[in-house]
Amino acid sequence: MDKSIIINGEKYPIDVESDMPLLWFLRDHLEKTGTKFGCGAGLCGACTVHIDGVATRACITPVGTLAGRAITTIEGLSENGDHPLQKAWVANNVPQCGYCQAGQIMNAASFLKQNPNPSADDIDNAMQGNICRCGTYQRIKKAVAEAADELAKEVS
């Protein structure tokens, strides 16, 4: 059986205990620290990555279950930090401390793929699993809405 995992397009062997959450496989084993530890219980969203394009909490997802799956982390979301969400984040000056923001952006990126034309309530519902203690929520709402508009232009 293939015991490897694809992270941001590169293949890595899963050579750790299979119950190790993906978060720690990324952070401690591969030393990719863009994905953050916040709660360890799937409650805050700081560790959000994409598994086959779907936003997932890496802190509660054992890496042993991910053989053959494709993971995208914040480091791999775009080539040059130019994903429409990243651009909207810059345009709206969203971050304060920035610690939760990778999780916020990854969660929003997955959500916009599923719902390219969200209402304000849709954005609230999709993003309420991601905590920001600095309180950047107002700017997150605006940035997600603007990125949705931008993505709509790209596909049309």
Binding site: K36, V90, P95, A102
Partner: peptide, 20 residues
């Protein structure tokens, strides 16, 4: 603008928890 913003949105800013 926040001078760290480009590092933050790419996951490149190093926090206390990130030192290797």
């Amino acid at each position: 603008p926040n001078q760290n913003i480009h590092q933050i949105i790419k996951g490149e800013l190093t926090y206390g928890v990130d030192t290797k």
